[in-house]
């Protein structure tokens, strides 16, 4: 999985490409371990092809972390990924934008 980050003051945009699964979820967590000063975390998922429960776990952890210091939102979620969010009721608390 590729992770591209763009920082713009208090906003951090992270573009994910590929698969967020058991192998790559720890990589993402490590890459985003330091969110000091980030008030808004935006995950651009246009190029995310696949997510498993390991990835959902990471999203939940990130969401919790960001709730304490600002907020997190997801953009450009592909239909297949959206299906997984819906079936696991992650849509209840994730902020998902077009």
């Amino acid at each position: 999985m590729q992770i591209e980050k763009r920082r713009d003051d208090g906003a951090l945009t992270v573009v994910l490409s590929g698969r967020l699964n058991t192998t790559t979820a720890p990589e993402l967590e490590a890459d985003l371990a330091d969110l000091d000063g980030v008030r808004e975390l935006v995950l651009d998922l246009a190029a995310l092809e696949y997510i498993s429960s390991a990835g959902l776990r990471t999203l939940l952890l990130l969401h919790r972390k960001m709730s304490a210091q600002g907020g997190m939102k997801l953009r450009h979620v592909a239909p297949g990924i959206m299906e997984v969010f819906k079936m696991t009721a992650f849509t209840k608390f994730l902020t998902i934008e077009e």
């Binding site: 498993s52 429960s53 696991t88 608390f93």
Partner: peptide, 16 residues
């Protein structure tokens, strides 16, 4: 699946 962000995370894999 009922709780919001405060939920315990287990059981999702088999459920999916």
């Amino acid at each position: 699946l009922v709780s919001g962000v405060e939920r315990e995370i287990g059981g999702l894999g088999i459920f999916i």
